[in-house]
Design a protein around this nucleic acid. Sequence first.
RNA 1: CGGGGUGUGGCGCAGUCCGGUAGCGCACCUGCUUUGGGAGCAGGGGGCCGCAGGUUCGAAUCCUGCCACCCCGACCA
Length: 585
Amino acid sequence: MRMGQMFGRTLREAPADAETASHGLLVRAGFIQQLGAGVYSLLPLGKRSIDKIEAILREEMVKIGGQEVLMPVVNPADVWKETRRFYEIGDEMSRFHDRVGRDMVLAMTHEEVVADLTRKVIHSYKQLPLLVFHIQTKWRDDARPRAGLIRVREFTMKDSYSLDSSEEGLDTQYRAHYQAYFDIFNRCGLPTVAVLSDVGMMGGKMAHEYMYLTPIGEDTIIICDSCGYHANRQIAQFRKPEPEGGDPAELRKIETPGTTTIEELCEFLKIDASRTLKAVFMTATLVDGEEEVQKLVVAMIRGDMELNETKLANLVKAKELRPAHEEEIKAAGAYPGYGSPIGVEGALIAVDDLVPDLRNLVTGANEEGFHVENANYGRDFEADFVGDLIAAGEGSLCANCDGTLRATRAVEVGNIFKLGTRYTGSLGATFLDDNGKAQQVIMGSYGIGVGRLLACAVEEYHDDKGVIWPISIAPYEVHLVALPGGEEEADRIYENLSAKGVEVLYDDRKEQAGVKFNDADLIGVPIRVTASKRSLKNGGLEMKLRRGDDLGVVPVDDAVDKVLELKSTLEQELADRVKPVEFSD
RNA sequence: CGGGGUGUGGCGCAGUCCGGUAGCGCACCUGCUUUGGGAGCAGGGGGCCGCAGGUUCGAAUCCUGCCACCCCGACCA
């Protein structure tokens, strides 16, 4: 590609709203342009890199038996109603009516369509197992898109769906994905860790998320450096401190004006937060048969700990959880800022499993300006649910060893999920087993966000001048710079390299050397070749890797071979990163 | 949805408080010079100042409403 003809341009300055490296650089280098909030166009450079990633995704999916399909983005709502997600999902799913008024949705994912295809196509155990995948646009009307391609509303996703007749089959396909995902990310040069993640309410059995560790990430993952344990914070296990015990003392009401937070309370009473009991008021949506009911949940945790909403939702079997409104709290007889289960009626009480072993805690009196001291579980309050409610955090004790846990930020670039029969059951996707008996097809679903992967790669590979692409996903392999006196030779090497199948971005513009070099650094193509009067005088063409290695001058006659050699070296480096990974759950 | 911020040429910004009909840098076009890390000189093109109302002789500037985009939050009780 001759740069003089290329659609797109580089910018000296990033748009003012680009706050992350990947966002700013992808815009500056001419890979993407924003159309609206969380909606981007890909320019030719961006499209080429995305195509490279998609090619890798296809190869790795086919390698584990995947067959590519393409499912529609616009779906009649019927299938979504059959699985009830039409009603369960909120504003994140966009809906509209077609001309005759039918409910339609923009697909956020494709479990429904896959299950529909399955019920139409699969009838016998002899047809299973199968793996289908597609690379398709998704629309999710995210409340808050941010950071360029890291979090967008319209995006391309590779999603694959395994179809099996047995749990063992699902397990096999799940593990195949577990490895394939590492292979995919490694081929793209992106370091990731797989962490166990929440399976949610939908009957899933196991899920892993593939995390790229970066401070700009929105997820928090918990890592133990001594035993290697890692998990999404939402489900991370940890060991709670040993309670001190002691004998229960008499419950007493104490005046504590202006202490609506644990911090203020501890300051006022000169005690440690671990001596307090914190009430967190949430409103849960519970499913009772066909009915949905809203109920106040009072979660009780030790004052120095943090509630993990996912654990609470799972414990009380809530479909949704949100912070309770003040009126809801008061209606149950509690008082915000001075809350506890004492005297509360009509609410579910959920108590962290550490609390029953704690003695003589300070907690709310449910009256403005008053707390109580010496509160004890069993005597002063009881619970509908007792279970782990605490979020692991920096400094928590590892559940598996003597280590201390570390919290770190990450971006989820992929996930794998054992769905089971959640969707095939709702849609009646069954097959006849070898006894002629109808069984529900067992599904798994597996996703990778293509644009997010690209953005994460830029986060990982850049410097203050621009991107430094891994060759596997670089828009071009060679950036050829022609400077005065080198034009003819540059034309020749451009033809020769192209003839060998090398992808060359040829800067044939009438620009100053500095402009060309800076653009080359910004765009980040891995191999740079320069032809100029000076290089020719020195015996040939200059070669340099974007990441820094200066390879000096290569004789003109050797240039093509040298480029091919460099290319294969760079490719091999990435290929060497692909190796078997032990399955970890 | 809550809070904050920003909308002025392709990009980055000034001008807004204190109303007088739009400016700077980069980019773009033409010419000459220059030619290895974002050149110099000269000339030039491009903006109904987010949109709609209102106030005023006169609005980028004041008032009202709306829209868009960005950031934070939507667990910290």
